[in-house]
């Protein structure tokens, strides 16, 4: 049986795993035969925005206020 977790807790686990994903993405682009290194700064920036989007999705009632981070 899959244990049900609260939405916020789930989103926090997702945010916690985000650095690993970003590292995978950056490493992949660095090694890419297609020459993707120039995309790395943009990707890191967008992924940071993504972490905030993910947090906002976790607390949907407060989502508009999360964006005040910007």
């Amino acid at each position: 049986m899959i244990g049900r977790k609260g939405r916020l807790r789930r989103q926090l686990i997702i945010v916690g795993s985000a650095p690993g994903t970003i590292v995978d993405l950056v490493r992949g682009m660095w090694r890419s035969p297609g020459g993707r290194r120039w995309m790395i700064p943009l990707v890191i920036f967008l992924c940071s925005v993504g972490v905030i989007l993910t947090l906002a999705a976790g607390v949907e009632a407060l989502a508009p206020f999360i964006y005040s981070i910007f």
Binding site: S17, A18, T21, C47, V49, G50, L53, T54
Partner: peptide
């Protein structure tokens, strides 16, 4: 960025 990139975490 809201979900699909973070499949490992999901």
């Amino acid at each position: 960025l809201g979900e699909k990139l973070w499949v490992r975490g999901v």
